[in-house]
């Protein structure tokens, strides 16, 4: 019997330990985060988990106080009503305690906030422009012999053109290609109305505002295909302008750039 079980379990264990699957796109009825691919997203998830600790403790404490009060001061059990209207000590305690909790929470929160704003001398700048209703990407660090840079549009693939395995309302014709383990500056703007360039796995959500260049940074730690969507209501096709970022190794990125420049 044991040998039989071993035969079934061992290959499964070997497979599950040797292969890691990341979710970089949303799943049906998903409640949690997508898997992080940048240090910022790891920070966001850690902060969320830290805050959940405080939330659970406060929820249990408040529920216990509330149910105890309802139980003990119910009119059949407590015929003579209390005439107590205020108590200085208790009021000081319930003001100071939440203030202290907020101060403790503020420390990791601010450090993450400032880490997100920090631009560490970038190696690449990529511009992303929101249009009604598609994204366009500009790689202007490199010019071809005619002095032209790489500019292309990224449209959603309609449902009828999807091939097996592609994600509905998330797949695009031209992905944004970025190298892994490289500091990238992203400049986000819009050509017509407000949009927002957001990718959960990369921990990025940056508003695209006409006439303004918003800067954010990206440091992708692993190769993969990351999916996001426009996150600022921008008109009738707001839900049909997804974002796809493909992270590749630096030499592959350089090859891709060379090919694009020679096109």
């Amino acid at each position: 019997m044991f040998n039989y079980l071993k035969l079934i379990i061992c290959p499964f264990l070997t497979f599950s330990l040797s292969t890691v699957f990341f979710t970089d796109a949303p799943e049906n009825w998903q409640l949690g985060f997508q898997d992080p691919a940048t240090p910022i997203m790891e920070g966001i998830i850690n902060l969320h988990h830290d805050l959940m600790y405080f939330i659970c403790v406060i929820f249990i404490f408040v529920s216990w106080m509330l149910s105890r009060t309802l139980w003990h001061f119910e009119k059949t059990q407590n015929i003579v009503p209390s005439t107590l209207t205020h108590g200085t000590l208790i009021e000081i305690i319930w003001t100071i305690t939440p203030a202290c909790i907020l101060l403790v929470i503020a420390i990791p929160s601010f450090s993450l906030l400032y880490a997100m704003d920090e631009i560490i001398s970038p190696a690449i700048t990529i511009k992303t422009l929101g249009h009604q209703w598609y994204w366009s990407y500009e790689y202007s660090d490199y010019l071809n012999e005619e002095g032209e840079s790489i500019i292309y549009d990224s449209y959603m693939i309609p449902e009828e053109d999807l091939i097996s395995g592609q994600l509905r309302l998330l797949e695009v014709d031209n992905r944004m290609i970025v190298p892994v383990n490289t500091h990238i500056r992203i400049i986000v703007s819009a050509a017509d109305v407000l949009h927002s360039w957001a990718i959960p796995s990369l921990g990025i959500k940056c508003d695209a505002i006409p006439g303004r260049l918003n800067q954010t940074s990206m440091f992708v730690k692993r190769e993969g295909v990351y999916y996001g969507q426009c996150s600022e209501i921008c008109g009738i096709n707001h839900g049909f302008m997804p974002i796809v970022v493909e992270a590749v190794k630096l030499p592959n990125y350089i090859t891709w750039i060379s090919n694009k420049l020679s096109e």
Binding site: I124, Y142, G211, S262
Partner: peptide, 27 residues
């Protein structure tokens, strides 16, 4: 098809424009 040499470099960070808004940096 001619060979293009790619140098991975970009506009450096400028202390005059430390914020998220880089419009003036470009200008």
């Amino acid at each position: 098809m001619s060979e293009v040499t790619i140098q991975v470099r970009t506009a450096p960070r400028d202390r005059r424009f430390p914020t998220q808004n880089q419009t003036n940096h470009c200008w």
